[in-house]
Design a protein around this nucleic acid. Structure first.
Lengths: 138, 138
DNA sequence: AATCATTTGGTACTTTAGTATGATGATTTT
DNA sequence: AAAATCATCATACTAAAGTACCAAATGATT
């Protein structure tokens, strides 16, 4: 947010400077108007690029392309996927059971199936693989 | 960000209007030079933004800011951090022991310390917390 | 020289994770 | 209607993870 304010200020100052320059040029006529316009174009082009470079953080928050088709292709069911998401949050089987209102046995069954379908030996590896496959949002 | 761009443009236009009003007192001009300049500024600003939006691959590659200062602040040692990285790769304690050429007991000690320092109950939770703290690259 | 943090490793133990197998009801598909 | 899939739960078991101690060698710091 500080960067946004800084960017705004910089832009306004740049505009003010350019207006002063244009006014001077208009009155004296020393510098050609084409040069001023070209300078303005370049300056704002650069500002535009720079202001856009501060976007990746925001983009990462908004761009979470969870490929649900891959989930289907792997034969992972809805419920299994729910469990997978909870695993990636760092929950234990018991905790997952409580959040989904089922028994721990059920979760164990789901986890085993998930590990089979993701070809993983451990839940941590399942997290890693699911992340690589863009199945879960990280 | 769309709102920001819109806000920028609106601000520039508003500035323009103000300058235009003040300028009329000085010169009884024809077509104002400020309008042209502002238009160019906006146009090239937008061009600058959109010309940069065609490079999402580079942004994803460059945006991996692993905050190693936080690792230090949490009191996590070099070796512990190495173990943490291996955990996030989905390796078991035995596998980590083999890759780092130490015994499984040592890894267990490291893992316990990591869990304490990250305030995690499980290694999966440690992965999640480390990711949130931007300690590991995901 | 003494202190401190790190790394290493051990034993003994508890807890959690994961496997194998079977079974039941519900839903969907054939 | 029969078959297949899914979600549920259970028991019994093995494997892995994690805790709680302890201890010794190393390297840096005071």
């Amino acid at each position: 947010m500080k960067k946004t304010i800084f960017g705004f200020s910089a832009l306004i100052i740049a505009l003010l400077v350019l207006f002063q320059l244009s006014k001077y040029t208009y009155i004296s006529g020393d510098i050609s108007i084409e040069l001023v316009i070209a300078s303005i174009a370049i300056v704002f082009f650069v500002i535009g690029i720079y202001s856009n470079k501060r976007l990746p953080q925001q983009k990462e928050h908004t761009s979470k392309p969870v490929d649900l088709e891959k989930v289907d292709a792997l034969g992972i069911s809805k419920r299994e996927y729910e469990v997978l998401v909870e695993i990636s949050k760092g929950l234990s089987n018991r905790e997952i059971a409580e959040t989904l209102f089922v028994s721990e046995s059920t979760i164990k069954t789901h986890v085993s199936n998930i590990l089979l379908k993701l070809d993983a030996k451990r839940r941590t590896q399942a997290i890693q693989k699911a992340k690589e496959l863009q199945i879960i949002s990280f």
